[in-house]
Simulated scan of single mutants.
Amino acid sequence: MLRHAAVLFVVLFSSISILGICKGVDIADFRNQPLGEAPPFQKPDKNALVEASAQLRKSLKPLDALLSESKSGVDWRAYLDWSALEAQADAGQKLDTSVLLKLYRRFNANENGLEMYQFVTVRRALAAAIEVAVAATNDQAAETYTKRFQKLSGLVSKAAKEKTPKSLDGVGPLLARLVESRQAPGLVTKIRSAVDRPNLYMSVDESLLSSAVDRVVDRTSPVNEVVLGTPVRGTGHTSGTVFLDFLPSSQRAVTQLSFQATNLANTRSTKGPVTVCSEGLTELSAQKRIYIDDERVWADPTIASASTQTRLTGIGIKSRFGKNFIRRVASKKVSQLKPKIEAISERRAQERVRREFESETAEAIGQASQDYEHKFRRPLKAR
């Protein structure tokens, strides 16, 4: 049904990215309402150390997979001190700051390859583990926190006055350190709501994508079913279109892939001496909405519908006696069963088109989602 469905998602991935709608306070608000006094320093508990260790363990998985497939994987593991990495990943509340610092320096060195996101992810997890370990065990952690807050307060005040991107350069790293050391979560949220802004906006004309997706459906297929215990044979001709629509949304990119068609079936059903010839007209439709935002690509389940009308085109009687009587009885029976037969046909057609539409779009949506994460978001996050 949808041989070109994959084209849709390739084009979507390469052409559209809608990054978060701005909400909350504005940076200029801090001009009249400065940060004030620093929230009290909170020493991270044991659970915070366990979480940092678990996050480090999770970050090692993509890198482990990469090194397992690389010819230089053994050398990389030796350079990175892989056994020490695994030990810290399993250390839980017993994280060793000195070991973490040594490991971090190796990941932060000027070596080719360390810019790959698999390495960057581990480096960031190490930095976070160092921050929470220092905050939990170092006597000077509270003093470090106070200095960071004072620096952050100055940068925010300056940014509120100047209102330029350049004035925000130092804010992000300081907020990251506060998050990693589990400090001032409310303040971090407030500042981020003021400084977070979309970093990419693109506009794509609907006709560009439609030209790659829209197509005509025209096919003939056999009918071979059993309805109310009677075999039904014949042929069905389906004609219609697959097309793409853009739907209005202020929060994300929304497209709808639709299928509209008519199936005309000519069938014969035989039971005993009676053969019934009929014509069925079924209106078919299926829709699937596809969403893209700054986090992911996903889709709603397929919605399908079918509406069937049948018409008796003839009754054949294979009997030497009583043909007229048998025909009258058969004609009356067909009229009585007509609503039930149409209802059965509608349900089957609806489920069939829903299942086919879902099956033929699922792989393309899954691939688009994977590509969006691995080829677009991860490289951006690793920078």
Rank of each mutant, 00 (worst) to 15 (best):
F243M: 09
Y291C: 09
Y372C: 01
R348G: 12
Y117P: 07
I18P: 09
S359L: 13
Y201I: 15
V99E: 09
T275G: 06
Y117I: 02
T302E: 03
V10H: 15
D26H: 13
V122P: 00
K190N: 11
L174G: 05
K43Q: 15
L264E: 11
S331N: 10
A349S: 14
V297H: 00
V99K: 08
Q309N: 12
L337F: 05
F376K: 13
L85N: 02
D64F: 00
L101Q: 14
L56I: 01
A261K: 03
R31A: 10
L56T: 08
S193F: 01
K46N: 11
R215Y: 06
K271C: 00
Q350F: 05
L175M: 14
A6W: 10
T97R: 12
N224W: 00
G186R: 05
L175K: 13
E373H: 02
A362H: 08
G36S: 02
M1G: 09
G73W: 04
Q256D: 07
K161D: 13
E295N: 15
S221Q: 07
A91K: 02
L284Q: 01
R347G: 09
R148E: 14
L337N: 06
Q309R: 15
N224Q: 06
I341F: 05
P339L: 04
R377W: 02
S239H: 10
L244F: 02
I344C: 00
R192G: 06
V204A: 06
L66Q: 11
Y201E: 15
E69F: 01
V217W: 05
I315S: 07
L126T: 06
R219V: 08
V254I: 06
L19K: 10
Q370R: 08
A133S: 15
S211E: 11
R289M: 12
I16D: 05
S307H: 08
I344A: 07
L312Y: 03
D293Y: 04
G113A: 11
A330F: 05
F9L: 14
E180V: 00
T146K: 11
L19V: 15
Q118R: 07
D205F: 07
E283D: 11
V7P: 01
H4R: 12
Q42G: 03
K58L: 13
S72N: 14
S68E: 11
T313M: 12
R31M: 02
S305I: 00
E279F: 02
G366F: 00
L85T: 09
P173W: 07
L114I: 09
S98Q: 14
E51G: 01
H4C: 00
Y79N: 03
Q183F: 05
T97K: 10
R233P: 00
P198D: 03
S70D: 13
K381C: 01
K23G: 15
Q287Y: 10
A212K: 09
A84H: 07
L228G: 05
S157L: 11
E360R: 06
V134M: 07
A330P: 08
L174P: 01
V227Q: 12
D75S: 12
M116V: 10
Q93D: 14
R296V: 03
G280L: 10
T313Q: 11
F259K: 01
V120I: 09
L49A: 08
W82H: 08
G366Q: 05
P379L: 01
F259W: 01
V353E: 04
R311D: 04
S239E: 13
R177L: 03
L209F: 07
F357S: 03
V227Y: 05
